[in-house]
Simulated scan of single mutants.
Amino acid sequence: MSTRRSTKTYCGPVSDHFDGGRFFDPDGVPPKSLSHVLRWQFGGGRKRERWPDWAPSPHADTPPARVNGGKVRLSFIGHASWLIQTAALNILIDPVWSTRASPVAWAGPKRRDAPGIAFDALPTIDAVLVSHGHYDHLDIATLSKLARTFAPRVVTPLGNDLTMRKADAAIRAESFDWHHRVELGNDVAVTLVPTRHWSARGVFDRNRALWASFVLETPVGKLYVVCDSGYGDGRHFRRVAEAHGALRLAILPIGAYEPRWFMRDQHMNPSDAVKALADCGAAQALAHHHGTFQLTDEAIDAPVVALGESLDAAQMPHEKFSVLKPGQVMEIDSVVPAFSREL
C-alpha cells in the first residue's frame, strides 16, 4: 500500500528485502564501499575515455496530445528518460531535464545532448514513474516543474516519496513496495518488480529508499522497463518472465559499465543486456542509459558498438534490440506481430 510519512527516511515492517532500517536485494550484493570508490577514482591504471563536450542528436520530437487505440508511442528523451503514450495516457519514465545529474548545479556529470523533447513541447503528463533515488533518475528540479505545470501522479518505490515531498510538497508522490500493482487508468497499470541495484542521495542514506523496475500493462501488451540493473545470474529477468508472462517490449540499460570490477554488480554492459533480453523473453528491446551523462569510464559510443557485437555473438538480429537517439520515436501496434517501426 502507499506510504505517506513525514519522517526523513522510510519506516515500515521488516520484510525479505527490508531489515527495518535499510533495503537490500536478497539475490544481489551490497553496493561498493567508499574505499572501492576511492580506488576507482584515484587508483593507478585508470583509463577514463574522454567524451565530447557536446554530442547533439539530430532528432527532436514534438509528441501528439494523446495516443488512442491499440498503439503505444515511445519517445526517447535521453539517458533513462522516456515518454510513453498509450490509451490516452501520457507517462514519463525517470524524467531528467536538468543540465547536471548531481546534487548541485555547478558540478557533477553534465549533459552532452539536449533532451529529445523540449519541456515546453510536452503534452499533458498524467503519471510519472521514478525507479530510484540516484540523481540521474530522480531529478527534483524536473519533478517540481512537472508538478507546477501538470500536477501528475508520481509512482515510485518505498521511501523515494519522502525525498520528493521533503524537497517540494507539491510533488504528488506515491510509494509502493516490490510486486505492488498500481492502476494508472484506462486499463493501464504498472507493477514494481525487483531489480539488481541500490539507492542513495548522499553519503549516509545508502539503501534507505527502495529501487525497482516496472512492468507496464498496455493495449499492445506488457512493457518491461529496466531503468538501472546489474545482471548477476539473470534470475531477476527470468522471474519477471515467469510472473508476468509474454512481454511485448523490454527497455534495457546498456551503458555506465566500466570498469567492470566496480560496475558489474549494479550496471549491465551490452553483453549482459543481450542475455537479459533472452532471459525475460521480450519480443523486442530498446536500449537506453547511454550517451547523455558520463558516469563511468567507457567512451560515449562504446555501448552502441558493443551492443552490435554482442547481438552478432548471440546470433540475434539487430532489429530485435534497437538503439534510438534522443528525439527518435518507436511505435508498437497491437496488430503488427513483427518488429515495431521506428519513426
Rank of each mutant, 00 (worst) to 15 (best):
T7Y: 04
P31C: 08
I171D: 01
V130N: 02
G21L: 07
R264N: 14
D297S: 12
S322E: 00
S2T: 13
I254A: 04
E342I: 06
G116F: 10
R22I: 08
F339I: 05
L295S: 01
G12F: 03
S271D: 12
K110P: 08
D120G: 14
R165I: 09
P253R: 02
P115T: 11
R5N: 07
V193H: 10
Q266C: 12
L138I: 07
G70T: 09
T149L: 10
N160V: 08
H134W: 11
T296E: 05
F214D: 01
F76E: 02
G43F: 06
Y231A: 12
K47H: 12
F150M: 04
V154E: 01
D120M: 06
G69A: 12
D177H: 09
A80M: 11
M1C: 09
R208G: 04
Y257I: 06
Q284C: 10
A338S: 11
P152G: 00
W106Y: 15
A282M: 11
T86D: 11
K325F: 04
R264D: 05
L252H: 02
D16V: 07
P95A: 14
M316Y: 01
S102Q: 14
H36Q: 15
F237R: 00
W261Q: 09
A173C: 14
G245T: 09
D136S: 12
V128Q: 00
S322Q: 05
R46A: 15
P31V: 11
C280W: 03
S75L: 12
A313K: 13
V193P: 10
Q328M: 07
T292Y: 01
D126W: 02
L311G: 01
R111D: 11
T124Q: 15
A147P: 00
S340Q: 01
P123K: 14
G21M: 03
R196G: 04
P30Q: 13
F119I: 09
A338H: 13
W51P: 13
L277P: 07
K32L: 10
A170C: 13
D161N: 08
T191D: 14
A147V: 01
D136P: 06
S2V: 13
P109G: 13
L184K: 03
T195N: 11
L311T: 06
W51C: 12
W261M: 06
P317A: 07
G70A: 12
Y257V: 05
A173D: 01
H244L: 03
S6Q: 09
P303Q: 05
K110W: 07
I84T: 14
G44R: 13
P326R: 00
A147G: 04
T292A: 03
V37I: 12
V220P: 00
R239V: 08
A121G: 05
H17K: 07
I125G: 05
L192K: 06
G230A: 07
V336D: 08
T99R: 14
V226K: 00
L307A: 05
N186W: 02
S81V: 08
L83K: 12
L143K: 00
R66E: 15
H267R: 14
D312G: 10
R201P: 01
D136N: 15
A241E: 03
Q328H: 02
R111Q: 11
L252G: 00
R238D: 08
S340R: 00
W211T: 01
I84E: 08
L249R: 01
S199E: 03
G12V: 10
P13K: 10
K166L: 03
F23M: 02
L38D: 04
K32S: 08
T218E: 04
P194L: 10
A283G: 10
D53F: 03
H79N: 15
L138T: 02
S15T: 15
K275Q: 14
